[in-house]
Simulated assay, not measured.
Amino acid sequence: MTGSFPYLDNSFGAPAGSESWPLAFAHRGFSPEGYENSLAAFRAAVELGYGYVETDVRTTADDELMVFHDETLDRVTDGVGRLADYTAEQLKQVRIGGVEPIPRLEEVLAEWPDLKLNVDVKDRPGGRLLARLIEQYKAHDRVLVTSFSDRRRRAAFRGLTLPAASSGGILSLAALTGLGRVGLARAVGRAARMHAVQVPVQYGRYRVVTPAFVRRCHAAGLKVHVWTINERAEMERLLDMGVDGIMSDRADVLAQVMDERGFWPQRGKA
């Protein structure tokens, strides 16, 4: 199922003719100072050798797509209230950590033409707006569309003239987890238009990522990406298990682990 998606096969990172490398995702970029989802955080990840970053998008009151995780500004910025209540112009006055501006997704696409983005759509208008930007920047091979909501994902699909890779929402992943045990993983993946499975190691007491789960997904043509892994020992264990990607807040540690295994750097050429 992933043959037509160079994003998932890491054709930008692995040398020509070699096996596909496991992907390393800098989760919201890399910023020990806490400037998550900022241009500075993405720049730091790129300087470490990352070709893949995970990020989130939310919509302003005037339909601009901003790179931001939370519904409200309060946790990481000097602003207050819901991002959706601000215009893009008003948000120019808000600073992440009191220092970094909130970027528009368009700025990230334009700044790094070779950077691959794992984009989590956080609100209903976001799918439509993300599709518009993918079309504008011809970014079909460098954006993976994901969301906890399958409805938001599908909104992005409807606006695309060419396919883009995608990971399933909560309902799709629940169906895959249950029906995959009885041999229906491939059917679920096709029905959900899902090309990758992005999951935590476990939900509550339920352990999701096991050797059997990885085997079932691979047999169905699905890549397995695991979030959010910050401990070296767990990164090593998951790579030994055969997962296809790891997302981490500790981009420095993950880069070192990947480098030691010969999977570094993962940046393509602009």
Rank of each mutant, 00 (worst) to 15 (best):
I96H: 05
V145P: 00
R158F: 10
G159A: 14
G98R: 12
K116H: 15
D85C: 08
V80H: 13
L162P: 00
R124A: 13
L109Y: 04
E100L: 04
Q90R: 14
A156L: 08
V108R: 00
L91V: 11
L133N: 01
A155M: 13
L130F: 00
K138A: 14
V80K: 11
E100T: 00
E111S: 06
F148G: 05
N118D: 15
A88D: 01
L115E: 06
P163D: 15
P125I: 04
D120A: 10
L105A: 04
W112R: 01
V143I: 15
L160R: 06
G126Q: 06
T146M: 13
I102Q: 05
R152T: 10
E111V: 03
V76K: 02
G79L: 01
K138V: 09
V94C: 12
A156F: 06
L144A: 06
F157H: 10
V108K: 00
G126S: 14
E106L: 10
E106T: 11
Q90S: 14
L144H: 04
L83R: 02
P125A: 13
K138H: 14
Y86W: 11
Q93N: 13
D120N: 14
K138F: 07
S167I: 00
Q93V: 10
Q136T: 15
L133D: 00
E89V: 11
E89L: 10
L91N: 01
R154Y: 15
S149N: 09
P113M: 01
L160Y: 12
N118R: 10
F157D: 06
F148N: 05
L130D: 01
L91Y: 05
V108Y: 00
L162M: 08
A110D: 13
D120F: 03
D114N: 05
N118V: 10
G81Y: 07
R151S: 09
D78I: 04
S167E: 01
A110T: 11
L83Q: 01
T161F: 09
E106G: 08
R132C: 09
P125K: 08
A88C: 02
L133E: 03
V119N: 02
L105Q: 02
F157S: 05
I102V: 13
H140L: 11
P103F: 06
S147K: 08
A165Y: 03
E111Y: 03
Y86T: 03
F157P: 03
L130Y: 00
